[in-house]
Write a protein that binds this DNA or RNA. Sequence first.
RNA 1: UCCCCAGUAGCUCAGUCGGCAGAGCAGGUGGCUGUUAACCACCGGGUCCGCGGUUCGAGUCCGUGCUGGGGAGCCA
Length: 442
Amino acid sequence: MSTTRISEIAGSLGQEVTLRGWLYNMRSSKKLHFLQIRDGSGIIQGILSLQDAGPELFAAIGALTQESAIEAVGKVVSDPRSPGGFELHLKDVRRVSPSVDYPISPKEHGDAFLMDHRHLWLRSKRQHAILKIRHTIIKGIRDYFDEHGFVLVDSPILTPNACEGTTTLFGTEYFGQTAYLSQSGQLYQEAAAMAFGKTYCFGPTFRAEKSKTRRHLTEFWMVEPEVAYMDLEGDMDLIEDFLCSLVERVLNKHERDLKESLERDIEPLKRVQKPFPRMSYDDALKMIVQIRDATTDAETKAALAIEWGMDFGSPHETELTKKFDRPIMVHGYPYEVKAFYMKRDPNNPKVARCVDVLAPEGYGEIIGGGQREDDLQILEAALAKHELPKAPFEWFLDLRRYGSVPHAGFGLGVERTVAWLCGLHHVRETIPFARTMDRLSP
RNA sequence: UCCCCAGUAGCUCAGUCGGCAGAGCAGGUGGCUGUUAACCACCGGGUCCGCGGUUCGAGUCCGUGCUGGGGAGCCA
C-alpha cells in the first residue's frame, strides 16, 4: 500500500490517499469528528460525519485518544475552513496502536515538565519548526564551507589536555589515563589548515562549567573553520559573508515557520546585511562608558563598571548590541584576557588580533575567533605566561617550526545561532536533547 | 561558587489577616452537523516538596534541607 506524506498532499488533490501517522488532536460533535492528523511532515485535518461512516466506525474513531498511531484513508479536498487549506474526507481510520494518558495536553505546560518529556515534546508544532530550522542551519553551514573550497577535517572529541587551559572540562577514564571531552577543535584545525589550506570541523563540544543561564549548554555544537594565509581582516570578511548566507537561507526556507509557529518578527533578520559594524575594543569600551554615564539606573550603572584591560561581561555586550540593528564585530581585545594562541598585534602588543561577533536583539556572543599566533617565540612565552605545560603542546609548536604562516579562523555556536534566528528565549529548545548542568535525561 | 525567585490535583495556577483545600485544562459520563488550544452540563481526583519549630490551630509565620527556574562569573 502506498502512503502519502502530508507535506506533499497538494499533489493528490481530489484523489483518495492513505496517511500513516498519529492523532494530534480531535474535536467532536454528535455527528462530526475533526481529526488533526500528523505524520512528521505536517498536520492535516481529517473530517468524518456520522452519516457517511455509519455508527460503528464513527464511535470507534470517537474513542481514539491523543497520539494514537493511525492509518487514515480519505479523499483530499481543498477547503478554506480547514487549517492548512486542505482536508481529508475520511473513509476509514485504522488504529495501529493505542496511546493511553498522553502527558502533554494541548494546553500550556511549564519548562521543567516539558523538558522531562522532551522525547514526546518533539512531536509538537513549535519544536518541529525549531528543529527543522536547526537542520537548515546545519546544512547551510556545511554547504557554505563545502562550496568555498574548505575541506572537512574533524577534530578529535577525546583529547589528552585542556585545549585552552581555561574552562572546566569533562574527564573520563581512558585505559589508565585521563582523557577530556573536547571543548574546542581549534588547535587541531590549525594543523589541518597547514595541511589543506582551508578546513573546518563541525561537531559536539563539551564544557563542564556550572553555568545556569539561557545561553549555556554543557554539550553544544560548534563549527570551526580555519584558513592559512588569512589575517584578521580576512577572517571578518569571511564571518560576514558566512553569517549573511545562513540568515538568507533560513529566511528563504522558513518564513512561514518563523512567522506562524514561532511568532518571530523577521524584519530584524532582513536587516542582517553586509557590512557589519566593526569596532575596536577601545571604541567599544568608549561606547560602554558613555552608556554607563548616561544611565540613571544605579543597578545598570554598577553592572556596566569597567576599565581598560577587563574583558566584557554579558551586561556590557547586551548594552552595546542594543545600539545596532545587525551583528557587530568587536576586535582587538586586551592581549592578557584572551587565550594563549591568539596573535599578539605587532603594532600594538597590548591587544590581540581577535574578534567576537555579538548578535543583535540581546542574543550576545555567537562567534569567537581571530588570527592565531604564528611566531614560535611569542607562542612559547604565551604558554609560559598562562602556566601551561609545554610538552603536550609540542605538536602545536611544530606548526610554527615547519613553515609557519599567518592564519585565522573562528568558532560559531550552532545553538545560539538557532536561538537568535528563531527568536527563542532559551537555547535548550534549539537542540533535540539538551544537556545542562541539572539535566542528563531524557 | 555567589545572588534572586518558585515548589498546592495528571498539567497550569489562585489561595486574602494564621481559621472547612479551590479554579481552568486533562480524564470519565451525557449533549451538540464546520470545530480551530471547540463549546455546554455533571462526576472522580490532594504526602499543599521533606524535616524541625512557633501556635488552640500552619498551604500561609520561622529555621533547615532538597528540587527546579533566572542571573553573575566563564564562554559558543
